[in-house]
Design a protein around this nucleic acid. Structure first.
Length: 175
DNA sequence: GTTGAGCGTT
């Protein structure tokens, strides 16, 4: 195991049934639209989210599919796990994480600090406790994050390539 | 069509 969390390893191996499915082993060229086509066969979806590499903009090869109903996600998990998609055999399992990380608020939300300790190393600052509570609070995901995660075109890879070749198409061909 | 196995802040 690459995970040193001990008890969490079991939760990773056997996630509880959930409306959020993790889909792994995807082709780099499988888009959210492709996943939507496949997984909407099992029931209405609440959202689809391919995880992209922040630097390259390419797919990292896994995605999250959200169902409205848990019965549908169960069926999708059983039927779509191991299916071939874009030449890859995909793995489908209940997600252990529910949603992307909560963005940093940028302001201090913690308890007021009294300058008594002033330790730069130790202890738990107010910021940490804010994050801890934030996770629990938003653990039950709502429609808040999927609405605006859909606006971007799935392939910045392509748009870069397109604009480049487009500017080149005006130069004359030779030889 | 840079692959592995991947649980997420575009």
């Amino acid at each position: 195991e690459t995970y040193s969390h001990g008890g969490d390893a079991d939760a990773r191996a056997n996630p509880d049934p959930n409306t959020c499915l993790g889909v792994f082993g995807l082709s780099l060229y499988t888009t959210e639209r492709d996943l939507r086509e496949v997984f909407s066969r099992y029931g209405p979806l609440a959202g689809v989210n391919v995880v992209y590499d922040q630097r390259t903009g390419r797919s990292r090869g896994f995605a999250f599919v959200y169902f409205e109903r848990i019965e549908d996600s169960k069926e999708a998990m059983e039927r779509a796990n191991g299916m071939e998609l874009d030449g890859r055999r995909i793995r489908v399992d209940y997600s252990i994480t529910k949603r992307p990380h909560t963005p940093t608020p940028g302001i201090y939300m913690g308890r007021p600090t009294h300058n008594g300790g002033g330790s730069s190393s130790g202890g738990r600052r107010g910021r940490d406790s804010y994050y801890d509570r934030g996770y629990d609070r938003y653990d039950r995901y709502d429609e808040y994050d999927y609405r605006y995660s859909r606006r971007r075109s799935p392939s910045p890879y392509y748009s870069r390539y397109r604009s480049r070749s487009r500017s080149r198409s005006y130069s004359p061909r030779r030889y």
